[in-house]
Amino acid sequence: MVKLHIKKAEESLFLYETTVQILIDDMMKDVAAIYNGRLKVERLCWEVESLSKHGITLPPNMQGLTDDQITDLKLKDEWEDKCIPSGGAVFKKDDIGRRNGHAPNDQMAEVLTKTIAEAKAKISNKNVASNMCVTQATVQDALDILRGAVTIVYPMGLPPHDPIRAEFENEEDLSGSQASLDVIEEPQAVLWWAGKELQRGKKLMDFIGKNEKNKNSCKNTKARGRSTCS
């Protein structure tokens, strides 16, 4: 099996294993799904960490307001009493006013923290040094364990406006965010090897040869949705 070392600039991302017989179209779909899936796992890990520290996300019309402003505007979070973490909540105020401050207790927070570490390890760029490849199944496994941990801590679920729920339901809105700039949609993707474009409709072997023992370094760039391989 041939391996591609996917990079972004000089940063290692993951190893991708395939065969020289694969169609470029299929390879690009797979690589894009893994690449974007890793970004999704990273976003979720950040949000779940925030959840463990400060509880569920406030409704959009309450975020960033002071307690006095919320009182003056007579606003109420209707999800506060519906989404209580297992074992009860511990108040830990969110200074930026994004989450409601009713955090899980230490035991439940530890469940989330350990799962975050496990999910990150599955898609970590450190796996490159260990010669471990990442697949769509790897990404899905990371997503599944994050979902499982959140369900354990919040068995009643999360409010519809919580970004964690949106990510799990594939309804995340990244518009206007830095995260949206990192995503590379598959139709925009172009792969290059040794200065040559890996053209759709052809096979990988048409470019790198029939040797299945090849290992190629690939630089993934955002510019015009292109990836450069060498």
Rank of each mutant, 00 (worst) to 15 (best):
W79V: 02
E118G: 08
P155G: 05
M156Y: 05
T71D: 13
D81E: 15
A121R: 09
M108C: 09
G101P: 03
P104G: 09
K92S: 11
I152T: 11
D95Q: 13
S86N: 09
A149Q: 01
M62F: 13
D94Y: 01
A109W: 02
V153G: 05
K122R: 14
K114T: 11
A119L: 09
A89I: 01
D144H: 08
D72W: 12
D144L: 06
Q140W: 01
I96V: 15
A129H: 11
V111L: 11
G88W: 11
S130C: 13
V153C: 06
W79A: 02
N105R: 06
G101T: 01
F91W: 10
D95P: 02
I70M: 08
G88C: 13
V128G: 00
I116R: 04
L75R: 00
K92G: 07
K82I: 09
M156I: 04
I152Y: 05
W79N: 09
G87V: 07
M108Q: 07
D77K: 03
Q69F: 10
D67V: 15
T138I: 04
D68C: 03
G148R: 06
D94L: 06
D77M: 00
S130A: 15
V150D: 02
N100S: 11
M132W: 07
H102K: 14
S130Y: 14
A121T: 10
S86K: 10
L112R: 03
D94F: 06
A142C: 08
C83W: 01
A103D: 03
T115I: 00
V90I: 12
R98D: 05
E80V: 09
D141I: 08
A149H: 08
A149W: 04
N100T: 05
E118N: 13
K114L: 12
L65S: 01
G64C: 09
D94N: 09
M108W: 07
M62P: 04
Q140V: 03
Q140K: 04
A117E: 13
N105G: 10
K93R: 14
